[in-house]
Every structure is written in structure tokens, then in C-alpha cells.
Design a protein around this nucleic acid. Structure first.
Length: 311
DNA sequence: TAAGATAAGAGGGACAT
DNA sequence: ATGTCAGTCTTATCTTA
């Protein structure tokens, strides 16, 4: 059935490597790692599955460099890589490969992926990943007998997670008029069966997204990112929904910078409840704020010194 | 009106059976 | 496969400043 190469997946060691004839990419059929080219380089950390584990096994160093993340959503930042045209063609050209009927049945799903991607402003890179995941699922017979919408929703959501595009289950589910929990169920089913580990979403991504929604200055996002970094190091985000933590961090950054935003506004932007924002905020106040303020003070001091010295 | 507090209920993960 | 357990988040309601 599957093509086999003499290659081994560097992540899971499987020799079950599929070649995507369109892109020439080598993809591990077991875990989905793209071996030769593509998004693999963007996906750094795979080990953890849920939020708890993520913090427990938090990679120590490696500060998440806040280098202009492309946070998407209605801002013009998405079209960075101008490969859109190429990848659309890539998606269309799926029939050329593999003669069997499976590829044919996949086509409508790919179209749906395109549709939802347009609606939710999802970048091409993510669309391709979703298509790739759907193919893997189809080849393993995981789609048969299940709602195609739910499966498409699941792979789109998964691709968003893998490529760190901040979209919630709710975002994806509502496009298909599905319930969040149903998409979630499909998502978990699919990726348990595929054996693919998908890293938890990063709170920093949501922080930027929230700031964008509320038209907050970049400095707020930068401060929120620092808060989140400290929170992570302290384990204060353990087991919490990243988007909720992000909302609280942004709220705290606003407060500290004299920008008035209510908890309700943050809650709405993050699509969580006020209670969640409150609870996360409370935790951040206790655990993170002291350290954060100290670091800020030190940072300012350094900046002042540097400026004085530079003159 | 914003924010804090509390309680009941749901859904899901870990773990054991 | 099914059940229990601990923990989170949501909804609803009430209180406080």
C-alpha cells in the first residue's frame, strides 16, 4: 500500500515514509513529520501533548523569540510567503498521483479545506498541512463512515495547531455548523489513531491575536509575552487553557501600562468567560507579577545605562 | 458598572479494573 | 470497554466597591 523508502523518520524512527508526489516532500506516515522540506523547520517542539505535560517538561532555555510572529486574523500579515498561487495549484493537482480511488474521494475534502481557509484567513502553509493530514487519514481508512465535515474540521484545526496559527475549535466548528465538542472528538480520535502528537497551542500566539482584536499597541503584546514567559517558567500555566492565560496576561499588561480595558472585553476577545480571565489573572497577580515588575525595572535600568553610555 | 466570589454541571485525561 | 478521580472551565447568581 504505502510507499516505503530506506529512510527513517528522525522523530519516531518509523520506516513508513510516504512521498508526496506533488511537492516532493517526504512525510512520515506514522507521525506526520515532514522530513525533507516544508513546515518541519517551523515546528520545533513535539514532545508534549496537553497543557500539563507541556509545562512539566518545559524545555528549559530556548526563549520563545517574540520576533514578529505572524499572528494572522484580519491583519495584512498573512501573505508573507508569496507562494500562494503555487500551493493552490499544488492542491488542485492531486489527481495525478496514485491511481486508486482513494485520491478521488479526497478531492471534495480538499476543496472544503480551501473554503474554510478562505473564511478564516488561514495561511497557505497551514492549508497544505491540513491537506496532508487529511490524506494521511484517508489512506489509513479513518475517514470512511464518518462525517466529512467533522474530519475536515479536525485536520484544519490540527494544522492550525501544528503551524501555530491561533484558531480555536470554536472558530473551526462554527464554519461547519458543528459543535465544538464534536470537532474536538474527531480531532482526538483522528490523531490518536494516526499516532501524531500535536503540541499545545502557545499562549503567546493568542496574546498577539487578542491585542490585534482590541487594537492594543504592540508594546502591550510585548509585555504580555514577557508575562507569559515568566508564567511558564513558574509553572503557573500548568493545565490551564492557553487562551485564557493569554487573555489574563494581556489584561495585566494593560493595567500596568495605564490602558483601560475591562475583563469583559478581554474575555470576549479571547472567547472565554470573564470568570476564567479573573481566575487566571488572580494567579498571575500572585505568582508572576512580582517577578515581572522586577524584571521590568532591571530592564529599564539597563536601557538607561546603555543610553547614557552611548552618548 | 466593573470586578470578585461561589456553586453546580459538563467534558475530557489519567489511571485502574 | 467502563468507571472513578482530580482538576478545569462554563453558566448562573450574588456580593462588593
Amino acid at each position: 500500500m504505502e510507499k516505503e523508502e530506506k529512510l527513517r523518520c528522525p522523530r519516531c524512527g518509523s520506516i513508513n515514509i510516504i512521498e508526496d508526489s506533488d511537492t516532493g516532500e517526504l512525510v512520515c506516515a506514522e507521525c506526520g513529520l515532514v522530513i525533507s522540506v516544508g513546515i518541519a523547520s517551523n515546528m520545533k517542539d513535539w514532545r508534549a501533548f496537553d497543557s500539563d505535560e507541556y509545562v512539566k517538561r518545559a524545555h528549559t532555555g530556548a526563549p520563545i523569540s517574540p520576533v514578529r510572529p505572524s499572528f494572522g486574523l484580519d491583519t495584512g500579515i498573512i501573505g508573507q510567503d508569496s507562494a500562494s498561487k503555487k500551493s493552490v495549484r499544488k492542491l488542485r493537482r492531486t489527481k495525478r498521483h496514485v491511481s486508486d480511488s482513494k485520491e478521488k474521494t479526497i478531492e471534495p475534502a480538499l476543496m472544503k479545506i480551501k473554503e474554510i481557509a478562505d473564511a478564516l484567513n488561514i495561511p497557505e502553509e497551514t492549508v497544505e498541512d491540513a491537506a496532508r493530514l487529511y490524506r494521511m487519514a484517508a489512506h489509513k481508512g479513518l475517514v470512511k463512515g464518518r462525517s466529512m465535515d467533522a474530519m475536515v474540521a479536525a485536520v484544519v484545526y490540527a494544522a492550525c495547531r501544528r503551524t501555530e496559527v491561533p484558531r480555536t475549535l470554536e472558530n473551526v466548528a462554527s464554519f461547519f455548523n458543528l459543535k465544538e465538542k464534536d470537532v474536538g472528538r474527531s480531532f482526538r480520535f483522528l490523531f490518536r489513531k494516526l499516532g501524531i502528537k500535536i503540541p499545545p497551542p502557545k499562549a503567546e500566539r493568542y496574546a498577539y491575536q487578542i491585542c490585534t482584536k482590541l487594537n492594543l499597541p504592540e508594546e502591550v503584546a510585548a509585555q504580555a509575552t514577557r508575562i507569559l514567559k515568566i508564567a511558564k517558567e513558574l509553572g503557573a500555566t500548568m493545565g490551564r487553557e492557553p487562551v485564557g492565560v493569554a487573555a489574563a496576561a494581556v489584561y495585566m499588561a494593560c493595567n500596568e501600562m495605564g490602558i483601560h480595558r475591562t475583563q469583559r472585553e478581554l474575555a470576549q476577545a479571547a472567547e472565554v468567560t470573564e470568570v476564567t480571565v479573573r481566575n487566571r489573572y488572580k494567579e498571575l497577580l500572585e505568582k508572576v507579577r512580582p517577578i515581572w515588575l522586577k524584571q521590568r525595572k532591571e530592564g529599564e535600568k539597563r536601557a538607561a545605562l546603555a543610553e547614557a553610555g552611548g552618548r
